[in-house]
């Protein structure tokens, strides 16, 4: 065989010619993956839009039963985690290994706080019988079925969002380990960059979920 397969490194896999080409490819691949995520959540946002237009009053009443303060706090927590994430990426660009680890750990902790608050909220729903199913009951509206529709969407959307958070947390843990092992440098930090993109995307989903689920009809027309 005449070909000279160049020595494979993390920054330059054998199918690429240059490290820049590989970085561009990873970045494009990640963005396309995020496009698929947009469409995935998009299906649920569509269902939400349709039903909210069909049953505005019930959706208002059901939304008011959510804890907006916790929702706002969680939004802030997630935005902070995006901030620490971007600082981790920045430290990665500069090749500061310890700083990367510190900010990744902070991001992971904030992610866990978010999930903890979320778990607390879900637990409340179980106690208040706000979980769709035979035992469902929401005070203040005769339309119990339609109220279940709201909570079905609430659980589907926040549930799949939380699942993405859990996956993100797993990826962060892996990144922390790899950074600790010294796999990244200023010349090669693509995984930190890519998982950063993922984390910010999950943040953006919540940026929409918060007002759409928690803040409908807060000014309280009539129950």
């Amino acid at each position: 065989m005449v070909s000279e397969p160049h020595v494979e490194t993390l920054a330059l896999r054998e199918q690429f010619d240059t490290a820049a080409q590989q970085k561009d490819a990873s970045s494009l691949g990640m963005w396309i993956f995020l496009v698929t995520e947009v469409m995935f959540f998009g299906g649920m946002f569509l269902a939400y839009t349709v039903y909210r237009n069909m049953y505005p009053a019930v959706f208002g009443a059901a939304s008011r039963s959510l804890n907006a303060t916790l929702g706002a706090i969680n939004t802030a927590v997630l935005l902070c985690s995006s901030f620490t994430m971007v600082l981790a990426v920045r430290a990665g660009q500069l090749g500061r290994r310890k700083v990367v680890i510190i900010f990744l750990v902070l991001t992971l902790i904030l992610g866990m706080v978010f999930l903890g608050v979320k778990a607390f909220e879900w637990n409340e729903k179980f106690q208040e019988h706000h979980v769709p199913g035979p035992a469902f009951h929401l005070e203040g509206t005769p339309q119990q079925g339609e109220a279940q529709l709201f909570f079905s969407l609430y659980f589907a959307m926040t549930g799949l969002h939380a699942l993405h958070m859990v996956i993100g947390a797993g990826l962060l843990a892996l990144l922390i380990y790899q950074t600790y092992k010294g796999r990244f440098s200023a010349a090669y930090y693509t995984p930190i960059d890519m998982i950063g993109l993922y984390w910010h995307f999950v943040d953006i989903v919540w940026i929409y979920l918060f007002p759409l689920l928690y803040l409908i009809d807060r000014h309280g027309v009539k129950p």
Partner: peptide, 19 residues
Amino acid sequence: HLGIFDPARGGDPVLFQHL
């Protein structure tokens, strides 16, 4: 027991068909 397409709870099966 989520009921997003369940007509008994006001859901719309046609929405499933759209998606």
